[in-house]
Each structure stands twice: as structure tokens, then as C-alpha cells.
Write a protein that binds this DNA or RNA. Sequence first.
DNA 1: CTAAAAGTTTAGACAAATCTAAAAAAATAA
DNA 2: TTATTTTTTTAGATTTGTCTAAACTTTTAG
Lengths: 224, 224
Amino acid sequence: MQSFTEENYLKIIYHLSLNNEGNVQTNAIAERMQTKAASVTDMIKKLADKQLIDYKKYQGVKLTESGRSLAINIVRKHRLWEVFLVEKLHFKWDEVHDIAEELEHINSPELIERLDEFLSFPKNDPHGDPIPDKNGKFDTATFIKLSKLKKEETGIIMGVSDHSSSFLKHLEKLGLTLGKPLKIIDVIDFDGSVELLLETKKLNVSREVAKHVLIKTSIDNPAS
Amino acid sequence: MQSFTEENYLKIIYHLSLNNEGNVQTNAIAERMQTKAASVTDMIKKLADKQLIDYKKYQGVKLTESGRSLAINIVRKHRLWEVFLVEKLHFKWDEVHDIAEELEHINSPELIERLDEFLSFPKNDPHGDPIPDKNGKFDTATFIKLSKLKKEETGIIMGVSDHSSSFLKHLEKLGLTLGKPLKIIDVIDFDGSVELLLETKKLNVSREVAKHVLIKTSIDNPAS
DNA sequence: CTAAAAGTTTAGACAAATCTAAAAAAATAA
DNA sequence: TTATTTTTTTAGATTTGTCTAAACTTTTAG
Ligand SMILES: [Mn+2]
Ligand SMILES: [Mn+2]
Ligand SMILES: [Mn+2]
Ligand SMILES: [Mn+2]
């Protein structure tokens, strides 16, 4: 069994390893954990002793199979609880992350299986992120950033890559919520902002926002 | 804010103070916490520093108003989660206590208010225990032990005073579940066991079991 | 290819919660 | 009321997770 702290380290290492290939660096972990590099080194050794990560001094770390499996299970719990909070308790999508940070550490496989069933086995959380099933399998479909779309292209909003309350509230106000279809009217050279048609409404979105909105384009859908 | 451990101490002190009048003793806490008296003394000092309990050396402890209020809030959370687990996730009444022991420490007043509403503001948990409202108020109706009933008396099962899985499973098997009406046929002198009519079924219940089944008698219902 | 900068680890310390063993106080019994 | 038992507290140690400061490695720049 792992402590809450160990679980948080595993989860953060997992998330960091999705972005960059290769090993996860001490400083990157320290920043995400809001702690000091020296503390990370201490914990890294402990996790390596437990065979949850592979670690060679100065070379960063990588999850082992069992470490990865534990991390994915924490992510599964986090996202299922977020669905519960939004679908059943009617929280808004910008209010659930912090509560799920606590709930994800509740340790009862039976509870999570029943919660999954109660929620009708959701495939995605309120931010569009995929929910691993009990065997740790999940959709790996990666979506394209709104900021990468070109003039005339169309797509559907499938997720966000920033979960902060301020960002999500802003999206909500703009009407940029999951499932909405949109079409690029123009990309402004000057500041990289995007003019788009959201359903029937025309609006301008800053490049900063566009970078964190994830789109499934309607074009690349070959018969596969 | 208190640690999980501090919360558990407060809750145990609260429960112990319901049974005995006067102050709660160090050893009693140690037994319930499954720890040593020396550890209890350490924690007691800490809680006294935080003004959550009144403490004089060798005299035992008593919750202050703010300590009591915190303890009741933990009990509220515990019992609401138990209702959720039984009503929504279809756990059995003997399966929920341990999971609720973890969930009771989740810290989000908003979550608990919404959960309360989602459950339609239940008054009692799956074991018949009263659920404090958000102001800490709750029914203090105390029920009589089945073992105290006399021949011919009738009543309804309102709760249990032992929450162990083995006891609850046994009750389930006997059909002694919340809300069931019963009538005492006879009390056996020899072993103190109770013969009773449960709805239409006749059965014999040991004194040990009868001591932990709580009854609302149909008789004492004066116009008050 | 060296020197500076960036990143990482070690050494030593600290706070929280626990423990064992021993001392001290209170309760009980003779 | 004194002696014995029970209960509680203290002293000192341990474990977990953290920190600062200093040392060490690796990377980057010139
Ligand atoms: Mn989240
Ligand atoms: Mn999410
Ligand atoms: Mn319980
Ligand atoms: Mn209960």
C-alpha cells in the first residue's frame, strides 16, 4: 500500500511522462508537487526501492509496469469522481478538480467498480479526458489544438488541456464547451488569435486560449 | 485544519462521551484508536493546545464546543456517505463502515451539502443512527435494547449498537432488519435469550444479539 | 574543449505521529 | 491508612516527509 504522498508522486510522474518522451526529471516533479528537488530525490529513492519506478542517479525516472498501473488507477478514480460530481451532484466543470484530488485516494476497488456502474461506465471525464477501465485500458485518441487549425477547417470541441478554474470559467462564458461544433473563419497573423463560428455565433479567441482547447477535426476521418 | 488522525481522535472522544457521563479516559481512547496510552497523551496535549478539548493531567478529557462541533461534522459526513453507499451504490449495510471511515475525512462543505440534497436529506443512516444536519442538530430519540423488552411487548427495529460486519450479516440472516415490527413471545430465564414473533415468523434470539438491537416500543407513545 | 550554468544529490535538521520502558499519580483494597 | 494495582505521563527513540545549504554531475555556451 502507498501513502497519499507516494500516490501523488506516481500520478505526477505519469502525467509528465505523457508530454515528454524519455525520463522524467527531478525538477519537473518538484515543480508539479510544489516542493523542493531535494525532497523529490528522497521520494524517488523510496519509490525505486518499491520497484514502482526505474531510477539511475542524475538520469531522471520512468514508471515500471506496476508503477504505471497504480498511476493509471489513480487517474481512473480521479476522473470517475469528477463525473460523479458533475453528473450527479451538479457541480460545474471548473469546481470538481480539487475535490477529486482528495477522493482519488480513497482505497476501495469495490467502491470504484460500483461507482463506474452507477455512472454507466463513462468513457470521458467532464474535461474530455479519457477514463481508464478497470484493466487500465482507455482511448488514446489524441486531439488537435484549436490553435493548430487553419482557415475554413471545422471540428468539434473534445477536451481542454488546462484544468484551472479561471480558464474553464472563461470557456464557459465564451460558450466553448465540450461537444460544440465550430469552424475557423480566420487566423489573425498579428496576435495568432482565431476567429471562429461557434454553432451560429461568431467570436474571436486569443491564441493563449486556443492552445488549450482540443478539437476533433471533421476532415481527417478516413474509413478505418 | 486538522489531520486525519486528529479527526479520528475527536470522533472517538465524541462517541465515548455519549456512553459515559463525565470525562473520557486516556485508556479508553487508546483502546478505540488501537494505539498506546502514551500516544494518546501526546495527541491529547495537541488537541488541548488547539482548544478542541479541555484537559487536566490525570483527569481525562472533554470536548470543547468547537471540538464537539468538528466531531459532529465528521459523524455527519460518515453517515451521509453510508447512506450514499447503500442507497445509490447498493452496498449491503455491513459493507459500508470501513469505506465511510475513509470518506468522512474528505474536506469539502459544498460536497457534503450537495450529497445531503442528492440523498434527499436523510434523517438516519443504514444502521439507524441519526444524521446531524449542517448545523449539527439531530434527533436524540434513544431507543430501548431488545434485551430489555418484556413478554407481550411489541415494537419496531430502529437501529443497532454494534456495526461489525459479522453481527450485521447475522441479523440479515435472521431477518432482523430496520423497520421490522416484532412482538416478544417470551424471555427465557436460563440464558436470557428472547423468543419473538417477527412479522409472522417465530424465532429465538440470543441475549448477546438482543443487547445490540434497538427498538422503538409501540406502547410508550403518550400524547406529547 | 573548457568554463559557466543548470540540474541533482547528499548531509544534516525538523515536525508529526508513533512506540517502549520507566516514573509518577490516582484509585482500590486490605 | 498504608500497600498494591491501575492509570497516566514522561523520556527518549523511530519513521515519514519535508527543508536548507553545500557538494556534485551534466548540459550548454563560448
Ligand atoms: Mn482533475
Ligand atoms: Mn478532469
Ligand atoms: Mn459506520
Ligand atoms: Mn452507520
